[in-house]
């Protein structure tokens, strides 16, 4: 075979500022592309190789570890203000491989592959014998707890009827026997007090997401639920291109007139907390 010129990569320190810059661009990429769950933050840079790229630039080949934060992925809170989920809360780690192009001082992600995994139950038990462990999202108690919590939230709502987007986290808590759940919701074009058939409600064109935390406590002869939801500001409708390429103006939702105006934020707040509803 013809002799190929040796491929040469540049070794770089994992804590080198340039490496960290590339890793932070990679973490932002994760959080911008996650479809659900929680934002992740950089925990450790495992490996880095810097390959030359013809005709110009360099490709940073990175292996990074991340940790899940407590911020839901659609929460507008800046990542720097998001708390890292602690070991006692049953932490979740991400392992990612990235290729990040550096050209003209700019970093661009070329390739990303990540997977996340929760800490082992044994490790959680080591640091906190009585802490709750993560439960499967399709666990019947989890689904029931979310159902009861969302019903309680909609029952007290004076505005839109909110429907479930995803169950993002759940734990069985031993004492008192209860189920702790976190889930995402979105406003629909129905008025909560007037809903007869939730299946007829549609998500608003201008998405308004919310994030709820709830505890369903079992007791003799029944159950108690406490739920608190944080509603995020509405997200503008992405412009839809007409066949000839022109952008369509925001389609107004027909139910807008039926709904009370969304709570005006003054000054605009990123989120409105509703609850706890017991």
């Amino acid at each position: 075979a013809p002799h190929l010129p040796g491929l040469v990569y540049r070794e770089l320190n994992c804590d080198d500022p340039e490496t960290e810059q590339a890793a932070l661009v990679a973490v932002d990429y994760i959080n911008d592309h996650l479809l659900g769950g929680y934002k992740h933050t950089l925990n450790q840079i495992d490996k880095v190789k810097v390959w030359p790229r013809r005709p110009m630039g360099e490709v940073f080949e990175l292996e990074i570890d991340t940790l899940e934060t407590t911020c839901y992925v659609r929460d507008p809170t800046p990542l720097a203000n998001c708390t890292v989920r602690q070991l006692t809360e049953h932490a979740v780690e991400g392992d990612c491989d990235f290729q990040v192009l550096k050209q003209d001082g700019q970093f661009t992600v070329l390739f990303a592959k990540c997977h996340s995994s929760p800490d082992s139950a044994e490790d959680v038990r080591k640091v906190c014998p009585q802490c709750g462990l993560l439960a499967p999202m399709n666990d019947t108690k989890v689904v029931h707890a979310v159902d009861v919590a969302l019903t309680a939230f909609n029952t007290q709502s004076n505005g839109s009827y909110f429907q479930l987007v995803e169950i993002s986290r759940a734990q069985h808590v031993p004492l008192p026997p209860s189920t702790y759940v976190e889930f995402a919701v979105a406003a629909t074009d129905c008025v909560a007090k007037e809903v007869t058939d939730p299946a007829k409600c549609n998500l608003l064109a201008e998405k308004q997401y919310g994030f709820c935390k709830a505890t369903l406590t079992e007791k003799v002869g029944g159950e108690d639920v406490a739920v608190t939801c944080t509603l995020f500001q509405t997200q503008p409708v992405p412009p839809q291109l007409q066949p000839d390429g022109t952008e369509m103006s925001n389609p107004t939702s027909v139910a807008d007139s039926a709904l009370p105006p969304p709570p005006q934020a003054d000054p605009p707040v990123a989120a409105l907390v509703v609850g706890p509803v017991v």
């Binding site: 990569y9 540049r10 994992c14 890292v84």
Partner: peptide, 27 residues
């Protein structure tokens, strides 16, 4: 057989071995 191109590491100051520092905690 296709010769595997030899990968040569550029000479330079030895970078401190990776992995880098842990910013929060290790699972």
């Amino acid at each position: 057989n296709v010769a595997q191109p030899s990968i040569v590491v550029a000479a330079g100051p030895m970078a401190r071995p990776c992995p880098g520092r842990i910013r929060h905690f290790k699972i």
